[in-house]
């Protein structure tokens, strides 16, 4: 599904990613862990297609195609979805209008019929129910005045509606209380399927108690310095990142 080869990227001339290699097969869930400033968020932004991040080397192959030349919306229509760490508030733009436009843009790209407002609403209501969300939610402006938990749930709602094939969860657990974390994790787990892959980017092991990964990669100073099975998360929780840092310096 996704293969990242020797990815180098910089922001404002400062190198952040310094040669990332990663392979993610369909149906798999991988976690990217690492301390603050290791490049985790940059990696998700680069996959999403942020224009202010410059890729200087390497490639990102998604379903057999290098996506670096694709614009952000083309990647989205191809099925790449990022649940952002800090979802942007867009005052004045109604959630429903926004979501329907997005759903139909993607359906059109896939050659499917556009949803009329009745069908769209039905689907949205169902998804909101799954997420234990207040139906009033859909009428509010996108992320505007939302609490941290509401913003994250709104991201997951969008994931349900847009039906991506590759989902990147960028620090989705940050700012969530335990109840909201359980709701979000349950929704994500329900969404897992053999055709879908997940990349879970997180600083803490907490989220991985609920969304169990197949593999864990540790990112430090722009490189993946360690990979392993789910047991790696526990190891990290006990020893922290210091050991990794120390090893990396050596």
């Amino acid at each position: 599904m996704l293969e990242i080869r020797n990815l180098h990227a910089e922001v404002d001339g400062k190198p952040i990613l310094k040669g990332i290699h990663l392979k993610l097969a369909a149906g798999e869930t991988h976690a990217i862990m690492g301390p603050n400033g290791s490049g985790k968020s940059t990696l998700s932004q680069v996959i999403a297609g942020r224009e202010d991040y410059t890729v200087t080397q390497g490639e990102i192959i998604y379903n057999g195609r290098n996506i670096l030349e694709l614009s952000v919306e083309e990647r989205a229509r191809e099925g790449i979805f990022i649940a952002f760490q800090y979802p942007t508030a867009i005052p004045g733009v109604n959630n429903m209008q926004f979501l329907r436009t997005a759903v139909n843009a993607i359906r059109k790209h896939r050659g499917e019929k556009e949803l009329n407002s009745g069908d769209f609403l039905k689907e949205a209501r169902y998804a909101m129910q799954q997420l234990d969300m207040n139906p009033e939610f859909i009428k509010r402006a996108v992320n505007d005045g939302f609490s941290g938990g509401e913003k994250k749930k709104n991201e997951i709602l969008q994931m349900y509606m847009l039906k991506p094939r590759l989902v990147i969860l960028d620090e989705t657990d940050s700012g969530l209380d335990i109840d909201a974390l359980q709701d979000v994790s349950r929704a994500v787990n329900q969404f897992r399927s053999p055709e879908r892959s997940f990349l879970v980017v997180t600083h803490y092991q907490r989220l991985l108690d609920y969304i169990k990964p197949d593999h864990i990669h540790v990112l430090f100073d722009g490189r993946i310095v360690k990979s392993g099975g789910p047991e790696l998360a526990l190891e990290l929780e006990q020893s922290g990142y210091d050991e990794i840092k120390a090893a990396a310096v050596l």
Binding site: R50, T101, A105, L162
Partner: peptide
């Protein structure tokens, strides 16, 4: 707002349509 434009586009909405949505809003 470039971040709002990016957000809309990251959900598959085209640049032109995203602009239109934001201007109308």
């Amino acid at each position: 707002d470039p971040t709002a434009l990016f957000y809309l586009r990251s959900r598959g909405i085209s640049q032109a349509e995203a602009r239109q949505i934001l201007i109308e809003a």
